[in-house]
Design a protein around this nucleic acid. Structure first.
Lengths: 258, 258
DNA sequence: CACTGGTCATCTGTTGACAATCTTGGGAAC
DNA sequence: GTTCCCAAGATTGTCAACAGATGACCAGTG
């Protein structure tokens, strides 16, 4: 439990610049499509252009900004089709992570995840979106890192982008309690110890929620990926496609006890 | 077949530097673990350190080099466990791409892939490994790009690393004909039009070959991912795990007609 | 002999200035 | 009124030099 006395290394300017730009994009201060002018940002952050350029290059590699040679850096502005591609890929990665974690049966990891969920619950009750999503990130980082180091890297570059898009949809209040409820069900699954089932549920649920946000039906091609769904009472049941596919809006679910 | 008349834009120095370093790592001139000293490389390429730093940052984002703050850039030197993680992830991505492509039923894409395979065959017969792997890359790029834009990005960062590792194993002659044969079977599958089957076969085969290179048995947790195998006559059959798992060495296979 | 502490060469982090390129707006020609 | 061209401004690409951090070496000490 004791936090390692991590060496306080003064972060390089390029690292802090990267973080600042990232947060500005995240918060909406730099909207999708915005032209990131090096000299402006450098002056704003009180650094020179060198470190800032590195920060932009780094963000470009993560997919958050796009660099057009000779023209500069722009905040990415994904199309709905691109969003769909990201959402599908993220769901696959999530399912894979669930498989790894369930198979590992690492009680310490499960407890860490449970603790993160508790903090998320407090944040959700306080309507503190910022704290909620910080922990949300921690939850995923714990999950992916202990699963497969490269899974985490792939997930990370998708997740930031998807979040921006979801926020741009302008929902005044994201259903924090609903999101949390799903994570609690996921953790139950990890503990249950069936990797096949855990993968199927996490992947299915991620796709169902993702396509609901997109407000599109799930393509027939992907139906093999959606095989389970979670009932409001927390039980997992096979998912049956109607024709046409119904994307029924989920109602806010009652919370299970911690 | 006509190559797109891509705008010939004089590439920036950082872009060329990136390519040069990448090729040096690929060719083994910069071995895993090597310390990439900025001033040395800059002098070698006749550029200044600015663009070179950007190139190294970019390569770090792709996972080919690792930057230790204050100490510099080093060519990554993955452990066997990390290689396993990469191989599993790549297999999943490959399977997913196979699903997309099969479902798209895009005859033009299939023809492009077939053409690439023909070029690969000439290269294999000429024992021209370089040309073979260039086309090999083209094959995958065609496949992933038309499947899911983000799949390609995720795949790309894994593939370069895995290739380095495979080459480091020091096989004097990679079984080009064997590799090619598998790709030909994959293309047959894409054309056959069953996305579930295509995904299962590509994923299974990638894992079987990957773990054979690693010289490790396939973890029980992943067995659900390996459900098919390709017989020497090209037919696809269910894959049955023995206990213990046998990693039978494949013999060079007879080639089917183009 | 192991260990501490200081010195120094080397390398990374950062800066400001210069060069090349792109965009923009106005004016001339039709 | 529209189109084309060009020049000025803005912005990115590149460079060389400076500042700060790191690690190796070596002398001195218990």
């Amino acid at each position: 439990m004791a936090v390692l006395p991590e060496i306080v290394r003064s972060p390089s300017l390029s690292a802090t610049a990267k973080r600042l730009v990232q947060e500005a994009i995240w918060s909406g201060g730099l909207p999708p499509g915005a032209h990131l002018v090096e000299s402006q940002l450098a002056e704003q952050f009180q650094i020179s252009r060198g470190p800032l350029r590195e920060a932009l290059r780094s963000l470009a590699a993560e997919g958050l900004v796009e660099i057009q040679p000779g023209r500069g850096a722009f905040v990415v502005d994904p199309t709905p089709d691109e969003m769909q591609d990201m959402i599908v890929l993220r769901a696959m990665l999530g399912g894979m992570a669930a498989r790894y974690i369930t198979a590992s049966a690492d009680e310490k990891l499960f407890n860490s995840l449970a603790k993160t969920l508790l903090v998320m619950r407090s944040a959700a009750e306080a309507r503190d979106e910022r704290a909620f999503f910080d922990q949300h990130w921690t939850f995923y980082e714990l999950m992916y890192r202990s699963a497969n180091r490269f899974l985490f890297r792939a997930w990370q570059s998708l997740h930031g982008l998807i979040d921006i898009y979801v926020r741009r949809l302008g929902r005044p209040h994201l259903p924090l309690a609903d999101i949390l409820w799903h994570y609690e069900r996921f953790l139950d699954l990890f503990r249950a110890g069936d990797p096949d089932e855990a993968e199927a549920v996490v992947r299915s649920q991620s796709l169902l929620v993702g396509f609901q946000v997109l407000d599109r039906p799930i393509p027939a091609m992907l139906r093999a990926y959606v095989t389970r769904t979670i009932e409001p009472d927390g039980t997992v049941v096979p998912f049956i496609f109607d024709s046409p596919v119904t994307t029924s809006k989920p109602k806010t679910r009652q919370r299970s006890s911690a």
